[in-house]
Amino acid sequence: MSVKKGRQTYVNDRGVYIRETAAIVGPREKAGPLGDCFDEVRPEDWGEKTWEKAEAKFICAAFHKLMGKTDRKTEDIDCVLAGDLMNQCTASSIGLKDSNAPYLGLFGACSTIAEGMCIASFLINSGGMDNVVCMASSNFCSAEKTYRTPVEQGGQRPPTSQWTVTAAGGLWLSSEPGGPEITSVTVGRIVDFNITDSNNMGAAMAPAAADTIMTHMSDLNRTPDYYDAVITGDLGITGSGILREITGLSESVHMDCGAMIFDPVKQRTNSGGSGCGCGTAVLSCCFYPKLIRGEMKKILFVATGALMSPVSVMQSESISGIAHAVAIEI
């Protein structure tokens, strides 16, 4: 059973272990500072006629890549939790339809992977499930089409804007001991500080990350020093600066996957990377190996999401943020 601590945090009673991870990225991600970490690189359209098919292919291939790294068959997987940014989780449902695994579709914007890991922890702690796969994906072109303008339309991006990461990744979580353990999770609240600029998602999400991190620390009576790193999903450079100011987190403890994945000057990505695939790929291929190698022992992974839709933006609704925290220790 998960044991509740404080307001929003649950400590795993039954061990939940991250047994294996995998991520496939696009060429821009490969060219970035973390390029060598990722398992596989494929073009953004991957030879498909539509962006939707391409992203579905990414998530399908990432699933098979992950399964290929394990000694398990798809039949051993009790459930796949997956989500993406495309209308009604198009990529996940198309990409995983032939996987033959029980499926729960999620939408938590860019926080989807942490949402999946929270739910997977509960499912495994319930005693009912033993092997759960958490996945998330995003694709630059499909995200532009869903949220912004057609890919080929010319125009400038403001410095606070972020570049959607093309990546699909997954983590195999199991009750069977081995590898880094998810010791606790904090389910985030929806936090809205009245940001309406959809080109400044870092500012929209930073208060949610701050709220979840501070709640996690107070629920478990910890300070950020307990962790080797507090890793946010995709606040970017702008959002990271804001988070550090409002929480007092130091640069030595806080890292952000969105700020790490691209070289903002050389790759002209402004505030950094974003998207469901950003935190997923960086956690899977950068931080997971660090934990395995013993370079890090305790991390708090906080994936952040901007809960907006094209319609809510057009109707001038403010952009709410959400963040879920997953404590991983080895």
């Binding site: 606070t160 500080f193 870092g202 500012a203 100011e245």
Partner: peptide, 23 residues
């Protein structure tokens, strides 16, 4: 009831503005 050290929306707007580089 989000009490981010008593951060109000007005104060936050100023913080966000300061970190958000303009064009």
């Amino acid at each position: 009831d989000h009490d981010l050290n008593g951060l109000t929306k007005e104060k936050y707007a100023a913080v966000a503005d300061r970190h958000s580089a303009g064009s």
